[in-house]
C-alpha cells in the first residue's frame, strides 16, 4: 500500500494527501492507495503545486504506518528527530 507525501511549500512541514484531496499533517489521516492508484494520485497533483514541494510515494501498512525499506526514514519524518522528542509532530499532542 502507498501514501502520497510532500512538504508544505510555505513552511516545509511534512504533509500527506488525504482522501478528500487536501493535505493533512497526520499520516493516520492520509489516503492509502493501491500501487497503481497511488501513481495516478501523484501524477494528478500538478494543479496544486503552489501548496507543496517534492511530492513522492511512500510505502505504508494497511494501518497507515510506514513500511518497507524506507520505514525508518518515513517514521522519523512523520514523528520528528529521534534525539529531540520535544520537536516535530511527536511533540504535538495526539
Amino acid at each position: 500500500m502507498k501514501a502520497v507525501t510532500a512538504n508544505r511549500l510555505a513552511d516545509g512541514r511534512v504533509v500527506y494527501l488525504a482522501p478528500d484531496g487536501a493535505w493533512t499533517e497526520r499520516l493516520v489521516n492520509a489516503a492509502i492507495f493501491e500501487n497503481i492508484e497511488a501513481e495516478n494520485a501523484l501524477a494528478s497533483l500538478g494543479a496544486s503545486a503552489i501548496e507543496f514541494a517534492d511530492a513522492y510515494l511512500i510505502e505504508v501498512h494497511t494501518d497507515g504506518y510506514p513500511s518497507g525499506r524506507e520505514a525508518l526514514r518515513e517514521t522519523i519524518r512523520n514523528s520528528g528527530p529521534t534525539i529531540r522528542t520535544d520537536l516535530g509532530k511527536q511533540a504535538e499532542n495526539g
Binding site: 512538504n7 513552511d11 516545509g12 511534512v14 514541494a53 517534492d54 526514514r73 519524518r77 528527530p81
Partner: peptide, 12 residues
C-alpha cells in the same frame, strides 16, 4: 539552493 535553503526531512 544557491542561497543555502534546503528541504530536509521535517522542514526547510
Amino acid at each position: 539552493l544557491m542561497n543555502g535553503l534546503y528541504l530536509q526531512l521535517h522542514a526547510y
